[in-house]
Design a protein around this nucleic acid. Structure first.
Length: 259
DNA sequence: ATGCCGGGTACGACCCGA
């Protein structure tokens, strides 16, 4: 079973490339970030026509996440608990029945956190602490659990073309990395880093010829519970999609599982 | 390098992303 994450940077602007990629790759489950759409405006009919079930957690203009699945949803969960005043749509989770039992798939759009001297940075760190509590609960279920999405986090220097240039940014600074390590150390496996020692960038800025220069960063991740890691067969970063017509600045990242 | 691109809202010009 192939399970992927993709920050599409606006569903309206990216519907064509999404449909092309879905029709070509036919992934079983895809989590999307930055749909930038309310639920009612999400183009579900076009995606359902390819055989996908669609669940969204959107908001106006910004953020917004979704899950597309060839398998029917057993359960859906929307939103990160722990702060009643947080109205940003950044987490959606689905539970699916598979041959081996169940798989729990949680898609996230973790806050960027820049600029660091604004309220956005403590929001990022607080969001990550809330995510740790959420994940602790999920891990206690002892199920195959896949936490994937745009983490807005560069784990190590190998994950940036110019790591020194990123140091101090909200994506790559001590406070953010401390939270990342605490999250991973709850017992999660970084699927890409567990299967390759190559840089494996997932984002290239639209500006400054970043794609042409391969000036990328790895910030889209799949983190696996022990039960999911045991069933991991491989990963694939769909780098070629960055060179397609009207691309997102992120590319799909896929994990292959025996589920 | 920090707004050079690119999307959203809304229709002129700002807000936002990483």
């Amino acid at each position: 079973m192939r399970i992927a994450t993709w920050n599409i940077n606006g569903i309206k602007a990216r519907l064509e490339i999404l449909l092309t990629w879905l029709a070509q790759e036919k992934p079983h489950i895809v989590v999307l970030q930055e749909i930038k759409s309310v639920d009612e405006a999400f183009p579900r009919a076009e995606i359902e026509a390819l055989g996908y079930n669609v669940e969204t957690h959107g908001q106006k203009s910004w953020n917004g996440v979704a899950i597309l699945s060839l398998l029917p949803f057993d359960e859906v969960w929307r939103g990160l608990p722990g702060d009643e005043s947080d109205e940003q749509a950044r987490l959606i989770e689905g539970v699916f029945s598979v041959e081996s039992g169940v798989v729990r798939v949680c898609g996230i759009y973790l806050p960027n956190g820049n600029p660091v001297d604004s309220e956005k940075f403590p929001y990022k760190l607080g969001w990550m602490r809330r995510l740790e509590s959420f994940v602790e609960g999920r891990l206690a279920l002892e199920e195959p659990f896949i936490l994937l999405g745009d983490f807005n986090l560069i784990p190590e220097p190998i994950d940036a073309h110019n790591a020194e240039g990123w140091w101090g940014d909200a994506l790559f600074r001590p406070e953010s990395l401390e939270r990342w390590r605490t999250l991973v150390n709850l017992g999660l496996t970084d699927a890409v880093r567990a299967t390759t020692s190559e840089p494996s960038y997932t984002f290239w800025d639209f500006q400054a010829g970043a794609w042409r220069r391969n000036a990328g960063i790895r910030i889209d991740h799949l983190l696996l519970s022990p039960q999911a890691a045991d069933r991991l067969d491989g990963v694939r970063v769909h780098k070629e999609v960055r060179g397609w017509e009207k691309p997102s600045d992120h590319v799909p990242v896929e994990g292959q599982f025996s589920l």
